[in-house]
Design a protein around this nucleic acid. Structure first.
Lengths: 403, 403
DNA sequence: GTCGGTTTGTTCGAGCTCCGAACTTTATGC
DNA sequence: GCATAAAGTTCGGAGCTCGAACAAACCGAC
């Protein structure tokens, strides 16, 4: 039940009815495929005749395909319908500070190609190289129709201008990625924050999310970012910058953050924080056992390996990180009470160790802990890429923006 | 753009079109009244004929009324349309721990009666007395049609069961208020958390909120509660308990809260916190100047009076409260980036002193501070009561729940 | 006083959509 | 071979908006 926005609304026509019901049908097929027209009639409540007409049109538009014929104890055999996964191709791009991954996907987030390249430091060089790679990919994987390019970025996209803003880990200032890439490739480009992309991925192609309408994704890398889906809808705030809970103080007088605040959650619970904890634990006990007083930073990946090998110093650093991660997650659980909170990042590799610590912190600090399932994401890159596919295709599957 | 919820959707029929367009018309009249059919045609983009038909039906249903005839330099004079504020009566109820306020309202949140009673300690006694008062009110103020009863409560309402849960300041455990009051009065009852009610009030009858779709209300009394409207829609989380940012730790090892957590925002920035700060400032410097070592608690209202009189101890306590209020608000600004954040509570009486401190904290701690306007609410009781009216009437003015 | 120009508001047929009943198609079992 | 049953199609009816034509109401110039 949302207020009608009088500065951008759309009146309804007869075609609106068809549009709404077509989308419902498309979603019902997606959910229940393979499925007969008769079953769609029962799921939707529409008349048999109406279902037939809509199905016919969706088949003509190549959204659906008729498949096998079913078997029933009595009566005429039903013709099953299913999605045509090749209806739309999507180019998914996952930009991370070190590397950028590209994928060719069909409508069901099945990737037919996956490749990566280093992320160029210079923004304009990056745009040029990325555009090149995309055109090459399209040439190498010709499809009937590419629907668009979805790009996940460690930054926020300004509502309206669609420009990249606040991307500290990339070191880029405000930047228009959309226009040049659209010009070079000839395809529409959609940009989204990585955490938002993960949330979208979970919403549209997640595992156990039937009827889940409130979902939060927390991405943990060298920063922490939050993507929120509330009431079945991405929350971007008035400017697109909503979700920066990573820059909320967890310790009021904690370490200074580049955002200007002190003791930010991401200063205490990001990969970088674990690296710092590990380094500090070496220096504090001066005559340490290992006598390695090398203050050279150990990469987070190495710390994870050490944890897997049972190294106590690494475990301690990881535990500190997990503790603070849990406190921040408790904030989100208390404040947003989502059905699902998904953690995305390398840290999920050792979730058997991190999960219980996070769970304990949430249980102690959030009296609403029972409503939220906290789950680790399978693969970060896959999550973000599935998110870019959802980003491009959601306009066909979501409710039409009525009124 | 929201996902279609396959467990509760509604297919579209021809009437859906009429429904959508009627609601748009109703909102356009509300926004621009008095307004002619010809102007409505221009605002909506619908055909003149369609506007006439819809207007005719809305007049027949008593939503609109024809009013004066306008004057134009040329041509036929337009007949102005305006809302019929007496179309629906609403009983608004604001339950606070000490007192409960009742109001009779018309469709435009104009109150024709306002009265209050002590809030009974015992829930069942409370229900009985409230029902009585409501029936008396209805008898004393007969209207063509009462649309329903809206009740604002310092607690959360469980989604689905519509029961009151988590109402610590009232001291009531889980409770069904809806059923008995509906039975006694014969009117439908809608319950909502006070902070959510304030957010709804601001959304539907606020001052400067054209096009504002992201709005947060923070209620500050003996607890702190948050109501969120994101994407033009109330956020209740999966169970109805979303918004309890008051129970997020601000100081990890701070004072123990009854919720089980430590250093909760509301332990540091609520009215009760200011009362505690004031009491502590008397005891800490042992040979204090005033030599009043009375640890008896001074009510928050008295502290505000002392602040208005310039009492330094009271000012210091208030400043501490304001400082922590600002830190919590910075969390909301950073995480949700709303257009407007409204503060509701007695503390707004001294907003000239509190506002700058809050603003400073937000500026220092939230790099997104520029997107959010932080405003004090005029009157708490009025805010909550207007919210209850919006609560009851929003189903007629909001977009239909399509798909 | 009348007539052209202008704007508001109404009327009515066309086109689209869903509904619902009747019909066709295709299967099983006696 | 016939009754029964289920899937899917056909077609007239009703509701809605669109768009053009029409009626109403007003101003100012001649």
């Amino acid at each position: 039940m949302h207020k009608i926005n009088l500065s951008k609304f759309q009146v309804a026509t007869n075609e609106t009815v068809r549009d709404i019901n077509s989308r419902i049908m498309l979603n019902l097929v997606r959910r229940h495929q393979p499925v007969s027209r008769a079953d769609l009639m029962r799921y939707s409540g529409l008349q048999r005749s109406t279902v037939s007409v809509i199905a016919g049109r969706l088949i003509a538009d190549r959204w659906l395909r008729e498949g096998a014929v079913g078997n029933l104890p009595r009566g005429r055999r039903p013709t099953f319908l299913h999605l045509n996964p090749e209806r739309c191709g999507v180019i998914g791009v996952d930009v991370q500070p070190a590397r950028t991954t590209l994928a060719v996907s069909n409508m069901e987030s099945q990737f037919s190609a996956l490749e990566s390249m280093p992320t160029a430091r210079d923004p304009s060089e990056f745009v040029a190289r990325l555009s090149h790679r995309i055109t090459d990919l399209i040439r190498a994987h010709p499809k009937k129709s590419y629907e668009g390019i979805g790009i996940s970025l460690p930054g926020r996209i300004e509502v309206g201008s669609e420009r990249l803003i606040f991307a500290p880990t990339l070191g880029w200032s405000e930047l228009d990625l959309k226009t040049p890439i659209e010009r070079e490739t000839g395809l529409p480009v959609k940009l989204e924050n990585a955490a938002n992309a993960c949330a979208l991925a979970e919403l549209w192609s997640g595992q156990h999310i039937d009827g889940v309408n409130n979902l939060v994704a927390v991405t943990v890398s060298d920063d922490i970012s939050v993507g929120m889906i509330l009431n079945g809808q991405l929350v971007r705030g008035s400017t697109g910058v909503a979700g920066e809970f990573g820059h909320v103080s967890q310790v009021l007088d904690g370490p200074k953050c580049r955002c200007g605040n002190s003791g930010c959650w991401e200063m205490l619970a990001s990969n970088a924080a674990a690296v710092r904890y590990y380094a500090e634990s070496a220096s504090v006990p001066k005559g340490a056992i290992g006598s390695k007083s090398d203050m050279a930073t150990v990469p987070f990946g190495d710390i994870l390996r050490l944890v897997e090998q049972g190294d106590p110093r690494a475990c301690k650093a990881l535990n500190q990180m997990a503790h603070h991660l849990g406190i921040g997650i408790a904030m989100l659980v208390t404040g947003l009470a989502p059905d699902v909170l998904m953690v995305v990042g390398e840290v999920t590799r050792v979730w058997d160790k991190v999960g219980p610590i996070v769970g304990e912190a949430v249980k102690r600090r959030s009296f609403t802990h029972a409503v939220t399932r906290i789950v680790p994401a399978g693969s970060e890159v896959q999550s973000r890429l599935r998110g870019t596919v959802a980003l491009v295709l959601q306009k066909h599957f979501s409710a039409p923006s009525i009124a």
